[in-house]
Amino acid sequence: MLAIIRRDFKSYFNSPIAYVLIGLYMVLLGLFFNSLLGYGVSDIMSEFVGIMNGLLLLIVPILTMRSMAEDKKNGTEVLLLTSPVRLTEIVLGKALAAFSVFMVMTFVSLIFPLIIIVVGKPDIMLIMSSYLGYILIGAVFISLGVFASSLTENQIIASLITLVSIFLIQNLDFLAGFFSGFMNKAVLWLSISDRYIDFSKGIIDITSIVFLISFALVFIFLTVRVLEHKRWSQG
């Protein structure tokens, strides 16, 4: 599994993808950071991490679209599937590689809280809990993206599926408004942005952490099922 993580991670940096993503991300974050400073919001950092959260909608589809789809298209899938490695290891390896790139991006974004820490006196614990929420949500979206990528060999379709799904998940609160009673509660329970609000307030709730990690693992599991199913049906 380690080998797969390392290979895929390197491959992100072999192609322009990682650099373009990081560059794009930093430019966007810089712009938002600048305008937030101008507004004079009291709690800049949790606002800011909230924006980072929203930007996952753009970042994750690009990050994960190639994950499974590229192997299928190049035929390297055969190598992975005929090596003495479990399917779960393959999928986890791919997802963790994408997650590692995501972590590099997160690390680079730490420059903004650092600026705040240098010039002001923010609540560091609050920044950390916001970041924790952001990272967990990132993990959910990435495993969703890997799942989408396993459904097709076309990277553009994979990224579109991911984009639409993340958009829907980010707006579950809004969608919940269409339902009432039990359905309303069920949809709200699934809502991820709801969970993030807690983190951004500095509330680290174990159930939220468990919820987000399980959410991510469900997609990993589904991806494994997709691969398994393909073996039984087609060539």
Binding site: L2, A3, I4, R7, S11, N14, S15, N74, G75, T76, E77, V78, L79, L80, T82, S83, P84, V85
Partner: peptide, 27 residues
């Protein structure tokens, strides 16, 4: 089993040496 499929399963963005190292780890 060592398998060479009809289309060799190569990662085009790797060097030959890196690729074989990767295969060795996989196996």
């Amino acid at each position: 089993i060592g398998y060479l499929p009809e289309q060799p399963p190569l990662y085009l963005d790797m060097t030959v040496s890196e690729y074989l190292d990767f295969c060795a780890k996989l196996k």
